[in-house]
């Protein structure tokens, strides 16, 4: 396993505020795959495989959720796809690019918002554009305002991270991931630190945003409920070694709202994901902190899959 180095790209002179790699990614959007992983294997120790022979294809505009117990390598897979970690074997491409992280044209949201505390929300969102030095400072801010508007935080643009709630910080991080017009959004448990009731609303808002922008999205989550509500497809992983053990197609309409979550199809998808996890033993051996859950929602979903110790 190797960590890839940093590089700086010289950006083109097109109208969009993208790095060159992202422009290539956008140009390639017409091709069949947004994310293509083949035989991805990662070993931190050289003995034990964190990820073993992962094959995963995600089509443009598709949202995929990755679920599985702690330690099954979900976040590692996300880092490989982002180009932050080079696999020991196999390839991981985003719109045909396997270059440096900035060449892949991705947006990344971590579990923690990772905002820069000395910058206000607007400056945080504008930072990727300012680093690219392609747009003027005024244009960077204009794009940042638009991104903040998309996540409903325009009126909080001048606030510093310390003045924002946990949910607001994550939405600022989301706006920052979207500001460069990334077409693939990688989210590593983006709402894990947010209380359950707000999470449902954020899931719903993120889904709407993804549909509106035709985003390709890969979300890592510990919640079956969240996975089903924000995806077209749920990919289930197991540990020792980290591998894909199954996937469930989510048969829900594009226009989703809180009521969708109480539908029979939603319940069925949750149950299928739960069954795969049970078959692999994830639910039997998972620890409660990182429980796979499909909790009852406000709207009355009746699927339960709490972890058993």
């Amino acid at each position: 396993m190797r960590t890839k180095g940093t590089s700086m790209e010289q950006h083109g002179s097109h109208g969009a505020p993208w790095p060159q790699g992202a422009q290539q990614a956008q140009a390639a959007q017409g091709s069949q795959t947004a994310v293509f992983c083949q035989g991805v294997t990662v070993s931190f120790t050289g003995v034990h495989n964190e990820l073993q022979n992962i094959d995963l294809t995600i089509h443009p505009g598709e949202s995929v959720a990755l679920v599985g117990p702690s330690g099954c390598g979900k976040s590692t897979l996300l880092r490989v796809i982002a180009g932050l970690l080079e696999p020991d074997a196999g390839t991981a491409e985003v719109f045909g690019s396997d270059g440096s992280p900035s060449e892949r044209g991705i947006g990344f949201v971590f579990q923690e918002a990772t905002l820069f505390p000395w910058l206000n929300a607007l400056e945080n969102v504008a930072m990727p554009l300012e680093l690219q030095k392609y747009l003027s400072a005024a244009d960077c801010r204009e794009h940042a305002r638009a991104a903040l508007k998309d996540v409903g935080l325009l009126q909080w643009a001048e606030k510093y991270p310390r003045e924002l709630s946990g949910g607001m910080k994550q939405r600022v991080a989301l706006a920052r991931a979207l500001v460069t017009d990334s077409r693939v959004l990688l989210l590593d448990e983006p709402f894990a630190a947010i209380d359950a009731l707000r999470r449902e609303r954020f899931n719903y808002e993120l889904w709407r945003l993804a549909c509106k922008r035709n985003l390709t999205m890969l979300v890592v989550t510990h919640s079956i409920n969240e996975a089903v509500s924000m995806s077209h497809r749920v990919v289930v992983m197991a540990e020792d070694p980290g591998r894909i053990v199954g996937e469930v197609t989510v048969d829900l309409p594009e226009q989703r709202d809180l009521a969708t979550w109480s539908s029979q199809n939603f319940h069925d998808a949750c149950t299928q994901v739960r069954q795969i996890l049970e078959e692999t033993g994830a639910l039997m051996h998972g620890d409660t902190d990182t429980s796979m859950r499909c909790a009852e929602t406000e709207t009355g979903v009746h699927a339960h899959a709490h972890a058993r110790n």
Partner: peptide, 27 residues
């Protein structure tokens, strides 16, 4: 400076100098 912050700067395509000036020094 956290690992995720370094990773973010790499995703943004920041140069070594930009990482120092915009992330490491202020942190």
């Amino acid at each position: 400076v956290g690992r995720n912050q370094y990773d973010l700067m790499r995703i943004f395509g920041a140069s070594t100098w930009q990482i120092f000036a915009k992330l490491e020094l202020p942190t």
